[in-house]
């Protein structure tokens, strides 16, 4: 028993750490775009300041999105987006942490429709969401893509109706992420 305590437990602990690193995928490149269709003008923005991580054992997944990373066609829109709607001074990041609900054979190449449930945090509001997407596995790499619709009122983003008829109540968000095996930085 003493042997077990002395060698087995620390060994197990080390082993779990080691597998942990091996089963983690991290985004190599990720992109989020959003599109809002409205009577006066359509608004779209693209963000490449997106980071994601994925654990293929626990199926946990996380995203960090820099709000300032959203680039608009018009600078004034970008300023409004940051200053008035998302208040990026106060809330510089949006995050998602959740779990992929489907069981996936990460060792087998193919395209898997997946859904993930978790907490989307944005503009100081946490909301539990379930979103669908597709995972494509190719060797040691994976590609995740999909789209979701966000009601801006869910995140306490208020737009005075009289003044801002050019912004829709819901926005369509598209995301795509390329994952590669995680290598700890030296």
């Amino acid at each position: 028993m003493r042997m077990l305590l002395r060698f087995f437990l620390p060994g197990l602990f080390c082993l779990s750490l080691a597998t942990n690193a091996q089963n983690v995928l991290i985004s190599k490149s990720a992109e989020i775009t959003f599109f809002s269709e409205a009577p006066v003008e359509n608004i779209s923005a693209k963000n490449n300041s997106v980071n994601s991580i994925l654990n293929t054992v626990t199926n946990d997944i996380a995203f960090i999105v820099s709000i300032r990373g959203f680039k608009f066609e018009k600078e004034l829109m970008e300023e409004h987006f940051n200053e008035k709607y998302l208040e990026s001074d106060k809330y510089p990041q949006a995050t998602f942490k959740g779990k992929i609900q489907d069981s996936i054979d990460w060792k087998k190449d193919g395209v898997y429709p997946v859904s993930a449930t978790g907490t989307l945090s944005m503009h100081g509001v946490d909301k539990t969401v379930t979103e669908k997407g597709n995972i494509e596995i190719k060797g040691k790499e994976a590609h995740l893509s999909g789209s979701m619709t966000i009601a801006i009122s869910d995140f306490k983003i208020s737009i005075p109706k009289l003044l801002f008829q050019n912004i829709a109540d819901t926005i369509k968000v598209e995301y795509k992420t390329d994952y590669i095996p995680y290598q700890k930085k030296d």
Binding site: V24, I26, N51, S52, I53, N55, T58, D60, I61, A62, F63, I64, T95, K97, G98, K99, G118, Y182, K185
Partner: peptide, 13 residues
């Protein structure tokens, strides 16, 4: 695990 993943990502980003 979930928190750690987000923290890990935060450190990695």
């Amino acid at each position: 695990a979930q928190d750690d993943l987000l923290k890990q990502l935060q450190a990695e980003a």
